[in-house]
Amino acid sequence: MDSFVLLKKTLPTFIEKLSDEYDVFAPTRKDNIFEYKLISKPSDINLDFVNSRLPPKSILLQQTETLFKFKPGRKGKILPKEISEDKKIIFAIRPCDAKSFSILDTVFDSDFKDPLYLSKRENSVLIGLSCNNPGVNCFCTSFGDSPTSSKFVDILFTDIGEKFFVETISDKGKKLVEKITDLFEKATEEDKNLKDSAEKEAIDTIKRNMKLEGVVEKLDEIFESQLWHSIAMKCIGCGTCTFLCPTCHCFDMQDEATLKEGARIRVWDSCMYSEYTMHASGHNPRPARMNRVRNRVYHKFSYFPKNSEYTACTGCGRCIEFCPVNIDIIDVIAKVREVKV
């Protein structure tokens, strides 16, 4: 890991240099909503944010994505989709959202290797931005991460006043910085200290905490608990939690066609909808909201940790903040731990 510093006033030059070769996605602001968007000029960027409304998963796992095209009829055929090799940079991604890509990798890079996601993942460089002021519902520390964690990004920026403290972590990141070294200066010991104190301060700001020990085992024992009924009574099944979640990745596939051509597309779907599990026969294995609420918790906190090294939650706090009826995942896990078997 090498450390540099980049003066804040040279950031626009840095972004411009990147734009020559890469599609740069960065946080932009519209009213109160921050969104990662393809930017055309450095001044589009707004770094005055806690986190974006929609997670940056929407860049690599687009909400609507074509799988292949087809022509119907007797001479019909399937036209495979070209896989784009455009190079992308996701600038100022928060460490929690960067982690979500490592979690998504375990899904899309498993038995079946999803070419659409993986090609984009392969061709993108994640430039993280440490979270100096975590939000009220952030709890990434509960998963052993930190708001300035560099584990899942290629390059990490940390705001230390006049300049950014820049760490290059992966080979991808190192190569990118090597190409434009003249913009960076070597970091001094003082800069390093500033970064450390920013990290400490950020960690201290995080008030919320999810206790995870024993949850995986406990969940195995309380599948039939009344707890799920009581949580699900409130739930209105709107699916906001899953759409805004950086690790939720379920999708639906549909054919859309005109008379002359068509395409099979995939769109985000949510396990909170009853149509999600509806069989063609009319049978629904998760008929009630109780089953669906329970499934969401189990998928994240039981099935996922059993099958991979991660819990499918990064502690970004979006589902807590935007749940219309205040179903708070931290509270749910706390209740899980309290249930007597």
Partner: peptide
């Protein structure tokens, strides 16, 4: 009362 701040949640 909800789980944080002065948040309110439906109750049964």
């Amino acid at each position: 009362k909800g789980t944080y701040g002065c948040e309110v949640t439906p109750s049964f």
